[in-house]
C-alpha cells in the first residue's frame, strides 16, 4: 500500500519533534519534509505534493492562513495552534481539524485518522478553507497585508504600498507600488476586511488608499477623479466624493 506522505510546517523545533514522535506509531505514514516557515511550506507543497500537512498558524513571514490562500493544490490540513480563542471559533464553525497545543496522543491519533480517511476523496466544499480564513480574519480585525503568488514566489504587500483596488468581473485587481495582482475575491470582501481608516470605496468599481490621494479634480458634472501619488486617476462617484469630503474634511 502506498504510504501517506505528510509535511510538517511549524516554526518551533520542539513542536515538530512532537509531531514526528507521535507519527512513529503509524507505519503507513511517511514524513516527506519539515518546514520552519510558510515560504518553505509553499515551496515544499509544490515540490513534494504531500497528502496531508500539519500547519501551525502563527509563523514568521507567512501565517498558516496566508499560506493556504496562495496554494493551488490544497492537501488535507490539520492545524496546530496554541490558545487562540478566535481561531478556535473559526475552526468550530468549519469541519477542518485542529490540534490545540498541547494535545494528547489520543487527540492526535483521532485527528490523523479523520484526515487520512478524507484523503483521495472528493473534497466536500472547496470554499471551506476560504470561509475559515474569512472567519478568522473577521474575528481578528482588519487585514494588515495582502498575500498573493507571483511567478514561483509569494509576494506580501503591506497595505501602505497598495494604492487602489479595481473590480474586474468576479475578481479584484490590486494595484501596488511595483505592479498589480488579481485576487479571486469581491469588492465587498475588501470593503469589509480592509481598515476603513485607510481604504475607501469611492466608486462602485474602485477602492482607494486615501493616503495616496494627492488631489481631486472635477471630471464632468457631478463626477470627479482622484489623482494618486503615482499620477494615476481613479473615478470618484458623487457618493464617493461626499464620503471623501467627510473623511478628509475639506
Amino acid at each position: 500500500m502506498k504510504k501517506i506522505r505528510v509535511l510538517i510546517i511549524e516554526d518551533e523545533a520542539p513542536a515538530r519533534e512532537l509531531i514526528k514522535y507521535m507519527l512513529r506509531d503509524h507505519p503507513d505514514i511517511e514524513v516527506a519534509g519539515e518546514c520552519a516557515d510558510g515560504f518553505c511550506g509553499a515551496r515544499e507543497i509544490k515540490e513534494k505534493h504531500p497528502d496531508l500537512i500539519f500547519l501551525d498558524i502563527q509563523m514568521p513571514k507567512l501565517t498558516g492562513f496566508e499560506l493556504l490562500e496562495v496554494l493551488d493544490e490544497k492537501p488535507e490540513v490539520i492545524f496546530t495552534t496554541a490558545f487562540d480563542q478566535y481561531a478556535i471559533r473559526a475552526f468550530e464553525l468549519n469541519a477542518v481539524d485542529y490540534l490545540l497545543k498541547p494535545y494528547s496522543k489520543e487527540r492526535f491519533d483521532d485527528a490523523l485518522s479523520k484526515a487520512v480517511s478524507r484523503i483521495g476523496k472528493e473534497k466536500g466544499e472547496p470554499a471551506m478553507i476560504e470561509k475559515l480564513v474569512a472567519t478568522a480574519t473577521e474575528a481578528e480585525g482588519y487585514l494588515t497585508r495582502i498575500v498573493f503568488r507571483k511567478g514561483a514566489g509569494i509576494k506580501i504587500i503591506p497595505l501602505n504600498l497598495i494604492s487602489y483596488l479595481a473590480a474586474e468581473d468576479d475578481y479584484v485587481m490590486i494595484y501596488y507600488n511595483e505592479g498589480k495582482a488579481l485576487k479571486p475575491k469581491t469588492m465587498k470582501y475588501y470593503e469589509d476586511h480592509l481598515p476603513p481608516s485607510l481604504f475607501m470605496r469611492v466608486h462602485r468599481s474602485y477602492m482607494v488608499n486615501i493616503e495616496h490621494i494627492t488631489r481631486l479634480e472635477p471630471y464632468s458634472k457631478d463626477n470627479y477623479v482622484a489623482v494618486l501619488k503615482s499620477g494615476e486617476k481613479i473615478p470618484v462617484s458623487r457618493a464617493g466624493y461626499k464620503m471623501l469630503r467627510e473623511k478628509l474634511s475639506f
Partner: peptide, 9 residues
C-alpha cells in the same frame, strides 16, 4: 500554551 507544548514534546 506554546511552552507547555514544547515541554510535552
Amino acid at each position: 500554551f506554546n511552552s507547555l507544548n514544547s515541554m510535552s514534546s
